[in-house]
Simulated assay, not measured.
Amino acid sequence: MRIKTLIGRMFHLGYTVQGVWYLLRRNGWSCQRPARRAIERDKAAIEVWKKEVWPQVEDPRRPTAPGSASKTKPVKG
């Protein structure tokens, strides 16, 4: 997940990529990713989390059918 998306979801704020970079730098952080994986990494625990926990946390997908903004008029189609 991108930091920009995370900030938007957690704080209901929209930032540009440059704005997020500025916030990170101002707080002494960076967008760098680790160069290597942690030694303590447990692949089995990660797979269990992906299969059991993530589906419960993941946002439901938006419906593919068009909807109506009006509460009084049904969707024609």
Rank of each mutant, 00 (worst) to 15 (best):
R2A: 07
R2N: 09
R2C: 06
I3H: 00
K4H: 07
K4A: 10
I7G: 01
I7K: 01
G8F: 06
G8M: 09
G8S: 13
R9H: 08
R9N: 11
M10Q: 07
L13H: 07
L13F: 03
L13K: 11
G14P: 01
G14N: 12
Y15D: 06
Y15N: 05
Y15V: 04
Y15M: 10
Y15C: 12
T16F: 01
V17E: 11
V17G: 02
V17C: 01
Q18R: 15
Q18H: 10
G19C: 05
W21Y: 12
W21N: 14
L23F: 07
L23C: 13
L24I: 01
L24A: 10
R25H: 13
R25E: 15
R25T: 14
R25W: 06
R25Y: 10
R26Y: 05
R26M: 09
N27E: 11
N27T: 02
G28M: 01
W29F: 15
W29K: 14
S30F: 03
C31W: 00
C31P: 11
R33Q: 00
R33F: 00
P34I: 00
A35G: 06
R36P: 00
R36D: 05
R37E: 01
R37P: 00
R37Q: 07
A38T: 01
I39K: 11
K43F: 08
K43A: 09
K43V: 12
K43I: 09
A44H: 07
A44T: 15
A44V: 15
A45P: 05
I46T: 09
I46P: 04
E47P: 04
V48G: 04
V48N: 12
W49V: 03
W49E: 06
W49R: 06
K50P: 03
K50M: 13
K50R: 15
K51T: 12
K51L: 08
K51C: 10
E52D: 10
E52A: 13
E52I: 13
E52K: 14
V53M: 07
V53I: 15
V53R: 12
W54Y: 15
P55Y: 07
P55H: 11
Q56M: 12
E58D: 11
D59H: 01
D59L: 06
P60T: 03
R61Q: 11
R62W: 02
P63V: 06
P63E: 12
P63W: 11
T64V: 04
T64S: 14
T64H: 14
T64N: 07
T64C: 05
T64D: 14
P66Q: 13
P66Y: 10
G67W: 05
G67V: 05
S68R: 10
A69Y: 08
S70I: 00
S70K: 04
K71W: 13
T72N: 04
T72Y: 01
K73Y: 02
K73W: 03
K73L: 15
K73Q: 15
P74Y: 03
V75F: 02
V75K: 09
V75C: 04
V75T: 13
G77A: 09
G77Q: 02
G77D: 11
